[in-house]
Design a protein around this nucleic acid. Sequence first.
RNA 1: GGCCCCUUCGACUAGUGGUUCAGGUCACCACCCUUUCAAGGUGGCGGCACGGGUUCGAAUCCCGUAGGGGUCACCA
Length: 518
Amino acid sequence: MTVATRIAPSPTGDPHVGTAYIGLFNYAFAKSRGGRFIFRLEDTDRQRYDAKAEARILEMFEWLAIRPDEGPEIGGGHGPYRQSERTEIYRQHVESLLDAGKAYRAFETAEELEAMRTEQKRLGRPLGYDGRGRDVPRSEQEERARAGEPHVVRLQTPDEGSTTFHDELRGDVSIDNAEIRDPVLLKSDGYPTYHLANVVDDHLMGVTHVIRAEEWVTSTPIHVLLYLAFGWEAPRFVHMPLLRNPDKSKVSKRKLDTSVASYRDQGILPEALLNFLATMGWSMPDGREFFTLDEMIAAFDIGRVSLGGPVFDLKKLRYYNAKYLRDQLSLEEVARRVAPLLEERGHTWDDHDYLLDVVDVLRPRAETLVDIADAAGYFFTEDVRYDASARKQLAAGQKYLEDLEREFSILEFFDYDGVDDLLHDYVQAQSVGMGKVLQPLRAALTGTTSAPGVTDLVTILGKRRVLARIGKALAAINQGLPDDNPQREAEQEKQAAKLRQKGDAKAQAAGSKRGSLG
RNA sequence: GGCCCCUUCGACUAGUGGUUCAGGUCACCACCCUUUCAAGGUGGCGGCACGGGUUCGAAUCCCGUAGGGGUCACCA
């Protein structure tokens, strides 16, 4: 039988890193075995349903280059792929269970169940449905159902013994049947619960390996019992470790940014996110730490999943991203991705080589695409604003700037070597430290004292810009650096910090609801 | 709390009884390089949760304890 896996997210909010994580492993497993990877929408919860979420989840996988072989948009031989469009299928299957006496209709109201739980709590008894609906005669069940009385359908589970399933990573896991209390299969609104829909769909879609998060371990026996009730062979089960917040609890948007879109917006590369996610609970047989999705597939072995819950470490994610920016992706590729961000900021450039030069010197200093775009401002505007440290350098470097303006203006070969020689010769002639001369120049060119090498800057900017900027700096110095107003600067810093905080709070508020994967 | 799962440096992990007084990466620290900031190079800090077994030999197997996590819905 050909291998089939699936990712089955609920459309309840922002596409979640956990969805990407589980999707990645399902995809890698399926592809490594020449199998199918199915995308199925588990949209059976009308309360939490978010109409936008489906498209966004699909977009996320597209961004990550994890492309389903079957799904709601592309189709496939096992559709429909939205559970809300399969209600008739579930109804029929529930019917067969009812007919076989393996399920029953239960008429307790929410209030009644609540009262039951309260009583159980009071008596210190274990919580859970006590099976009281089992005793209602079948004929009465059918009659009340026909009369339109709201009810659910429950699976009748054994009270004695235990149910065991084999987890590919953990071995046999047994749970006492007493722990399983006649789970609801069909809700009173006619929609299936996860347990029913999941089992029916996995079976009908030919899913061979259920790879999902560890939180599902304890409900797997319910699924096993369901397969048994239907007379179907159960698939193989693999429960991946749960991604963790820094405090080790299950990843949640309260404690961590769990929105994939948010990482994308921060300038994280899909390749880097995927690579990082792949190292969560998994490692390459040869120990490689950087690898592409295809390389992962080629070497994939589900048995190499380790079971400790890995902490989602932002710093390491950013490290991976930085590494991709400067090493794993070509300069051309990075430039292609930075370009739109520069355009957003209103920057323009005449020739492509200029962009490449800029990205080339900026990328070793950046962790994200946004870092590059944010740092690139002075390459694209003549309106250089001097920060406090730059002004200090300018004030101290007037003489050097005047000299260099003259020297540069008569420099014939304005290339790297020419500029480099000029600078070195000049500094030597002045018999001062390099920094004494170069920091004021850097300040004049960029408005900051923290930037790429001066020779690079001068060469990339070119003679015209360099002379213009030195001239502008000199003018500013002569006017007593009017911007140099520490009080106002502090005020502005405060304002900016406030704005940033506001922005952060807003971004957090827009964060995702957790969507679980089954 | 019941049940289930898990447990190697602060974090991600390698390690499947002996070649390991535990290797790599991030983070951190120091030094080097250096015109700033990075990047890069070198080095350092730091761990087999604990207690019993089994074995000639245990991070690796077993039991117990502790700790962490998950789960106990007409959510998935």
